[in-house]
Simulated scan of single mutants.
Amino acid sequence: MENEIKKEKNMSPITSIIIVIALITGTSLYTVRLPKNQETETLLPPTQLNKNTISFQNGVELPVRWKDMGVKMVEAGVIDKAKFENLYSQRGGLSETEKKLLTSNNNENLVITPENSGVILNMLWAFGLANKNPILENGPMMDKRYGGAGNFASTGGWTLSKGGAMGHYSMHSFIKLTNEQQDLVERVAKNIYRPCCDNSTYFPDCNHGIAMLGLLELMASQGVNETDMYKFALKVNALWFPDQYESIKTFFASKNMDWNTADPKKILSSEYSSASGYQKVLSQIKPQPQKGGAGCGA
């Protein structure tokens, strides 16, 4: 097996992030990594989300109570509150509701909207990175060929903690899953892809992947069933990648497939939601105007 390393296209603002294409039995595996021996800022400014029919402009209430999770992560140092607030002070500041996610012990269900999707992404990124889970400890992230879990964008790109990100990687038991819940998370994670790379959530090498892993853990711990996990995962992905899912919806329409009745599990599969699957979709429809993207940074 040979690895070809090249810079990802259209990511000039993130000169530090490279894409490793591992050719495994004829299948391309895209892995977002950071170069060794280089301290680089990977936090990106927010993208302007495209207001479209999939992006749920009124927001989506997720079936998970946040409770005091933000407080716990701040106390553990996974989130440095000063760094987090400083980042958003450059973007107009956090809303009162967003501040409560870090400071309140009694938060209700998370609500994600086009406006706060970046904040929710970063909250879930921190949780997915830090919560102790066998996927992080025994899964593809630990494959020796990648030189250690600390070389990925999902780990090296998290600079909003006290101390290095790897000092928190799978180190905090914020929630503990039963064996049945863990099996559910692993099964669903292996079937959820994202348009920024060709890896499933089971290989959370970028911020979107590890944030989705965190969301799956929270949903499983609070009794959400498998069908609903896929349903809400699709809604969240559509908010994180609005233009991409508009294009996928356009493709469905061109094939006389009803988006509203399509199986979320199928839409989230590698056939449509992986980077390579999405490129195949684009090749079969008229070019769509791209008003916003989703970078792998906070």
Rank of each mutant, 00 (worst) to 15 (best):
T42P: 00
E41D: 15
L44F: 01
I18F: 14
I19A: 14
T47G: 05
P46V: 14
I18N: 12
T42S: 00
I17V: 15
L29Q: 07
K36L: 10
T40W: 13
E41G: 12
N50D: 11
L23M: 09
V20M: 09
Q48C: 05
T40N: 11
N52K: 10
V32R: 00
E41P: 11
Y30I: 02
V32E: 00
P45N: 04
T53W: 02
R33F: 08
T27Q: 08
P35F: 01
T25Q: 13
S28M: 13
P45L: 06
L23D: 10
T25W: 13
E41Y: 09
T47K: 05
T47S: 10
K36A: 13
T40I: 12
L49A: 13
I18Q: 15
P46S: 05
I19H: 04
K51N: 13
V32L: 07
S28K: 14
G26I: 09
T53G: 06
I18C: 07
Q38Y: 04
Q48M: 03
P46A: 05
V20I: 12
Q48S: 05
K51E: 14
T25N: 15
L29I: 15
I17H: 03
I24R: 10
Y30G: 00
L34G: 02
L49C: 05
N50W: 06
E41M: 07
T31E: 01
K51C: 03
Q48E: 03
I21Q: 08
Y30M: 02
L49H: 12
N50R: 14
L23K: 15
K51P: 04
A22K: 05
R33D: 01
Q38K: 15
L34R: 03
K51V: 06
I24L: 11
L49P: 06
I18Y: 11
I19M: 07
I21E: 13
P45D: 12
Q48V: 09
I24S: 12
E39S: 14
K36P: 10
I18K: 15
I19T: 06
T42F: 01
I17Y: 03
G26R: 08
T40K: 15
E41K: 13
E39V: 05
T53K: 12
T27F: 06
T25I: 13
T27I: 09
I17M: 07
T25M: 13
L34E: 00
R33V: 07
T53R: 15
L29N: 14
Y30T: 02
I24D: 10
N52V: 07
I19W: 04
V20F: 03
P35V: 07
Y30R: 02
N37W: 02
I21V: 14
T53D: 12
T31D: 01
L34D: 00
T31A: 09
K51I: 08
G26N: 15
S28G: 08
K36G: 10
T27V: 11
I21D: 12
E41W: 15
T47H: 04
N37H: 08
T42W: 00
A22M: 09
P45A: 08
P45Q: 04
A22N: 11
T42L: 01
V32F: 08
L49T: 08
R33S: 06
R33G: 00
Y30E: 02
I21N: 14
N37V: 02
T47Q: 09
T40M: 13
L34M: 10
Q38V: 10
G26E: 14
R33A: 03
L49I: 06
Q48Y: 09
N52D: 06
L43T: 06
I24T: 11
I17R: 05
G26H: 10
T47D: 00
T31Q: 07
T53Q: 04
L23S: 14
